[in-house]
């Protein structure tokens, strides 16, 4: 018997299904991946009365409607006078006890903490919220 062995033609992989899969992968990664990384903000929550007495200490109360109360005096949060006070406090290395009124949103409290840090106030204490 004569067997005719035909040489197998090498089948090239068709590129279209490959692109389909790659496109699906691309869409998946484009839609599901996030670029913002989770960061941390360190808070000191020491018990009251543990601060050293040789540095001046101030109380800031964060009120609703973008107002703050610094040692009993009311300021608008973006007022220049308040910013000046913060700068002076940072220069004096003052310690700050911050308390927010209970209705103020967490984001606003974090924003103020952020601002105090950026001014240079490092001794920052967050107290539980206070009633308005």
């Amino acid at each position: 018997m004569l067997l005719e062995v035909t040489p197998r033609t090498s089948q090239s992989i068709s590129i279209t299904p490959l692109i389909d899969v790659v496109f699906i992968l691309l869409l998946f990664f484009m839609l599901s991946s996030t670029f913002s990384k989770t960061r941390q903000l360190e808070l000191e929550a020491s018990a009251p009365g543990t601060q050293s007495s040789d540095t001046p200490s101030h109380n800031i109360r964060l009120l609703p409607d973008n107002n703050v109360e610094l040692d009993g005096t009311l300021y608008a949060i973006d007022a220049d006078t308040f910013a000046q006070h913060l700068n002076t406090m940072a220069e004096n290395k003052a310690s700050v006890t911050l308390a927010a009124v209970s209705s103020v949103r967490v984001q606003k409290t974090i924003r103020l903490i952020d601002r105090l840090r950026s001014v240079g106030i490092t001794q920052l204490d967050l107290s539980p919220s206070v009633k308005p």
Partner: peptide, 18 residues
């Protein structure tokens, strides 16, 4: 913590930490 919660939501955490 969810950003839109009132600050009082953080109180139990602060108290526990203290």
């Amino acid at each position: 913590i969810h950003r839109d919660l009132p600050s009082s939501a953080l109180d139990p955490v602060l108290q526990a930490v203290q």
